[in-house]
Amino acid sequence: MTKSIETIWQQGFIDEKALVAPKINDLYNQKSQNVIDKLQRTFRLNNLGIIIGACLVLLVLSAFSMPVLGLFIAAILFSQVWISKKQLIKLERMDKNISSYQYIKSFDIWLKTAIAQHTRMYQFIYPALFVACITQFGFSWVGQSIIQGFQMDFPNIPVLFGVPIVFSAGVLFIAFLLSYFASAIYQLDMKPIYGREFKKLEEIITDMETLRV
């Protein structure tokens, strides 16, 4: 190899006008494959799904004479939509006309904040939904008959607010497990979809940071 890379480059593009741009069809209506745009679409779609789900839960549970539980679940789900919407606004404000480092870094900061907020939400939402559903079940005739049957079989087990303490402890334990694994479940959920891209961004940031020192 005798030619320098600068010469190869210059000779390779002697006539820059000869560069043939690929044909683009109906570009404006095409879906963007940019990681940021794709996340925006995912967030919007998730929010829409949650809103529809929350309304359905409210309607169905009200129809089955459980409006309080319906309202509680809908409120939790709507709070999630509200937080996601706030995150989405921040993401939409991200400017692409900044340096590569600033662009990737600001996206990384947004991403980490969004994941942390979602993780905290799910740590609360999963156990809350579980406890709410179990409480509603406890008030149903099936739940009441199970509690009464248990109290007759084990009359010495202490009771708190009319519920055997082992039941409450069991529910709390499962709620704790749901809270504990919520973060891991959320991370597992994200990894197959965006794991490779997140890793790539991390590597680019680390590399660019060495150039900033």
Binding site: Q33, N34, V35, I36, K38, K96, N97, I98, S99, S100, Y103, I104, F107, E197, L201, I204
Partner: peptide
Amino acid sequence: TWIYKISLNVCLTYLKK
């Protein structure tokens, strides 16, 4: 310069199919 910036930022954050 702006075209360079956008092109690089897009290439660095493109999700391959």
